[in-house]
């Protein structure tokens, strides 16, 4: 068993278990913290995949910015226990059965039909593809228009959030 496989198993099991714990905890703060743990494990997996820039962006943007926003909102809206929310157990069973079927389908697609003949890992190429230098070059040459559009999207989202969260609509 290689070291890479051991690291993969550790990060993957942390990600899987924390995602399950996230959707089963009744306290929203604990669920948000498990989501942060899941994002951190994903950043480790991105590093294992030689995607350094995305790993750093994952920690800064997701685990840093977005989850702090979530925690702020949870704290603002007093974390009430969800047990008091009425929920039909039938819906739960139905949802779990349906999603288990979808998962089996996806696993069948991935393992049995083997859709990835192109995936022969070229280590040097993949290390090169993940560097911030390569990503920046692509971003500022071929993908400059989507990049600018992303800037406008963030501006629009900022203004929209301000307008929505304002005290009163006049």
């Amino acid at each position: 068993m290689s070291l890479e496989l051991i690291i993969f198993i550790v990060f993957a099991s942390v990600a899987a278990v924390s995602s399950i714990l996230m959707i089963t905890r009744s306290n929203p703060v604990i669920s948000a913290l498990f989501l942060v743990l899941n994002f951190a494990a994903l950043a480790g997996l991105y590093l294992l995949l030689n995607a350094q820039f995305i790993a750093v962006a994952q920690v800064i943007v997701y685990a840093g910015a977005i989850m702090v926003l979530f925690l702020f909102v949870i704290m603002l809206l007093k974390p009430e226990k969800e047990k008091f929310f009425s929920s039909h157990p039938k819906i739960k069973i139905f949802a779990i059965v349906i999603t288990a079927l979808v998962f089996i389908q996806l696993a069948f697609m991935i393992f049995i039909s083997r859709p990835t003949p192109a995936a022969n890992p070229a280590v040097a190429a993949s290390v090169n593809a993940g560097t911030i230098e390569q990503i920046g070059k692509e971003l500022y040459t071929n993908y400059i228009l989507p990049f600018e559009a992303a800037g406008y999207l963030l501006l629009a989202a900022t203004i929209g959030a301000l307008v929505l969260a304002k005290k009163k609509f006049e």
Binding site: L49, N50, A51, F53, I54, T116, A118, A119, N120, P121, A122, A124, A125, S126, N128, A129, G130, Q134, I135, E138, L139, Y143
Partner: peptide, 12 residues
Amino acid sequence: FSSYMGNSVGQL
């Protein structure tokens, strides 16, 4: 996929 194909478009 991006990493296994050695192409950075997926990461973009």
